[in-house]
Design a protein around this nucleic acid. Structure first.
Lengths: 217, 217
DNA sequence: TAAAAAGTTTAGATTACCCTAAAAAAATAA
DNA sequence: TTATTTTTTTAGGGTAATCTAAACTTTTTA
């Protein structure tokens, strides 16, 4: 069984390795987990002994199949709890993360299965992030242009047009791969969209831009 | 802020001092918490420094007003979570303790207020134990003879007749102060009761006995 | 009430996690 | 390609919670 701390490291490493097949570096983990590189080195050795990651000195860390499975059950728990907090307890979208961060460490497989059922087996959390099923698989959602997601919440997965000027524009307004967008409204006169990013900043996006951002619901 | 471990000690000390105004002894705590007396001594000093208990060497420990307040918020959380698990997730009465033992340590006052509201501000958990309100007060329930609690769940508070033979009989069938009884049925022909003790053992109790056991709903 | 037993505390280790400072390796720049 | 900078690891400690064994109090028993 994993400790609270080991679970946090593993989850973080999973998220950091999500984009790209490259090894995750010590400093990245330290930054993400708000700790010192020396502490990361210690923990990373422990996780390697337990076969949850492959660790090569000075090179970095890769998550193993077994580690991925563990990480996915933690993520499943996190997202189910977030869904519960918003849907059942009436929390706001932005208030749930810290509490879910604690709840994800509760150990009880039965609890999670019952919670899943109680929530009606949701496939995404309130941010639009997919919830893995009990075998660690998520439903692969089809990518659609943001322009087709009126009124919905969606996660940015890719861009069609990857010209520097477009990417620059996106980063300027705060849109990035993985961002959670809520498409609040479509303007009739020019088909521009009003969107909310990560439950916070609201911005307007032109028709052109909205057709070049690919999202999953 | 208290650690997970400090919370467990405090809650245990609260429960042990519940019956009687005597000091709680090191060995009692060690027994209850499944640890060694030496460890208890260490922790008890820490809690005393934080003014949660009064500790006198070789004599024992008494919980302070401040300690009581802390203990009651933990107990409130525990009992609200137990109620949630049974009422909303469909757990059985007997399955909830271990999970609630974990959930009671989640830190978020807002979560607890929202959970309380979601559950309809219950005044007792599924075992019949009263749930303190957010100021640590519980509704003082009136004591009634068990004979008047047909179909209900109730906690044993006292006995009217305290003859040794009656007490002996009670302990033999498994009824004790604090036990949680569910009165399943009343037999028509002799007014005896079928009861379930702590969600486990089912026994029959005579009319005489049922009139001499005082309970709160 | 003195001796034995029971209960409690202290001393000294252990484990998990984290830290700082210094050493070592890898990446970058001149 | 050597020197400099950056990154990572090692060495050595610190704190929280636990333990065993030995020392010390208190209670019980004879």
């Amino acid at each position: 069984m994993l400790s609270f701390t080991e679970e946090n490291y593993l989850k973080t490493i999973y998220h950091l390795s999500d984009s790209g097949a490259k090894a995750v570096l010590t400093n990245e983990i330290a930054e993400a987990i708000q700790t010192k590189p020396a502490s990361v080195t210690d923990m990373v050795k422990k996780l390697a002994i337990k076969n949850l990651i492959a660790y090569e000195k000075y090179y970095g860390v890769k998550i193993t199949r077994q580690g991925k499975t563990e990480a996915l059950t933690i993520i499943r728990k996190h997202r189910l709890w977030e869904t519960f907090l918003v849907e059942k307890l009436g929390f706001n979208w932005g208030e749930v993360h810290d509490v879910a961060e604690q709840l994800e460490h509760i150990q009880s497989p039965l609890l999670i299965e019952k919670l899943d059922e109680f929530l009606g087996f949701p496939s995404a959390d309130p941010h639009g992030h997919p919830i893995p099923d009990k075998n660690g698989k998520f439903k692969v959602a089809r990518q659609i242009p943001l322009a087709e997601a009126i009124g919905k919440k969606a996660i940015v997965r890719a861009v069609k047009n990857s010209s520097p000027s477009f990417l620059d524009y996106l980063s300027k307004i705060g849109v990035y791969i993985g961002a959670s967008l809520h498409v609040l409204a479509k303007m009739d006169f020019d088909a521009s969209l009003e969107i909310q990013i990560d439950g916070k900043k609201k911005v307007y996006i032109s028709k052109e831009a909205s057709e070049n951002i690919l999202v999953t619901e």
